[in-house]
Design a protein around this nucleic acid. Structure first.
Lengths: 152, 152
DNA sequence: GCTTGACCTAGAGTATGCTCTAGCATGTTG
DNA sequence: CAACATGCTAGAGCATACTCTAGGTCAAGC
């Protein structure tokens, strides 16, 4: 009765379960992402089921990397909104990603700095365990020395 | 009546407000940290007010760095519990910090990897904006190429 | 001795980011 | 055509890490 699409007409027509399996997320999470405005170009089939393509696998990979590097759902939503608006927003998208890139680089620098104290603390414990007495040089002093050495 | 400690007997006797100001936290947060078992060696004065020393400034600095690098409150609690138990737990503390150090290093590696896609995406947008048409080489392909180049 | 500010406890409220349940519809397969 | 998987919506629940409110106590200065 109804004009069905031939099985191989599209490069890929995935249902939510397929996307869930292939992206390593739960179907709940994927629907929730869509509700949050993080899933561009999701269509529906006759039975109102969501239809995805391979594009969405790549998309979720990007979302994951951005999330992993600390981008909030709110910012992902902004980025997704720009993508939905088409190529007129290319510059804005670029700016948004460049801003994020800077934030991540800053964060990595901060983490590296925070590690100096942890390194110093471990060294301190090593000496304490080896010597049996609390070392003279405090972890804070060591960390400071390390930072100075790195800068020099 | 009661044997009062002379005013200058201790190197520093700080109240919660001083600690809050000097550590950049709110008094609420500091009390909450204590309730979570993250504040060793807090004593009370006659009026049941918390008394801190300079030690706690350094302690909160460590807590902040560990938190910043993704250690959970639960893990901080474990570490703090070890510190409270004294020098018998030195090896355990060292192990806990070393484990965290590895996690942070792995995290930095992961972030750096996640950045390759963002870098590639920005480059892709730059070409698109400059050329007016969607470039042939996808961000994913670029990112893959970058990762290969880095490895080689 | 009274006001003012800092402090106290207990517990409620908030933001973020999922994660799952309930109850029902639809699609596929033997 | 029945059974069973898969999907749907709406909304509740949860973990984490704070953040703040309410209602009262305490200490020091005037």
């Amino acid at each position: 009765m109804d004009a069905r699409t031939p099985p191989q007409a599209m490069p890929s027509a995935l249902h939510i379960g397929d996307i869930a399996r292939r992206s390593g997320r739960s179907v709940h999470t994927i629907r929730w992402y869509e509700a949050q405005g993080l899933m561009p170009g999701v269509t529906r089939d006759r039975g109102r089921r969501r239809v995805y393509s391979d594009y969405h696998i790549g998309w979720l990979d990007l979302m994951e990397r951005l999330r992993l590097t600390g981008m909030s759902i709110k910012q992902l939503r902004e980025y997704t909104a720009l993508v939905k608006q088409g190529s007129a927003t290319l510059r804005k998208r670029r700016a948004l990603l460049a801003q994020h890139q800077l934030r991540v680089q800053a964060m990595i620098a901060k983490w590296t700095e925070a590690l100096t104290l942890v390194d110093a603390k471990i060294e301190f414990y090593d000496e304490w365990v080896a010597g049996g007495t609390r070392p003279m040089v405090s972890p804070q002093q060591r960390a400071r020395a390390k930072r100075t050495a790195t800068k020099a």
